[in-house]
Amino acid sequence: MATENQTEIRSAVDIVTARQRGRALALELGFNGADVTLIAAAISEVARNIVDHAKSGEIVMGSVATTQNGGRTGIQIIARDQGPGIRDVAQAMQYGYSTRKGLGVGLPGAKWLMDEFDIASEAGRGTTITMKKWKR
């Protein structure tokens, strides 16, 4: 169960690395094909958020378990940066249908892809996104 890995996100190339690792881990944890793709897409979006808004950060992913609902296991992904932070989280999480570059689709989209999505941000200190998906 100690499957955990960490990916430094410094440029757009690292987005690809992060989502490939996420895909591999999701497969290893026993997710089915559709869910593996959803997880990889969600990682892509949060990693892109780091590149677009914070320049650098990291993504840590690993397995997670809960005793709720008769006990479930899943994957947890934490995206962390020390960037400028998001001033208005509620606004950032609003879905902008016709988006320009940057926030609009990415984060709210990632939230839809996952079962749990939590975002903590402080202006000037950075942003931490924690998201989970449970096996069905």
Binding site: A34, T37, L38, A41, E45, Y95, V105, W112, L113
Partner: peptide, 14 residues
């Protein structure tokens, strides 16, 4: 576009 990819795209609203 593969089935799972198409599904993920619409889930993202794309």
């Amino acid at each position: 576009i593969q089935p799972d990819v198409a599904f993920a795209m619409v889930q993202l609203g794309l």
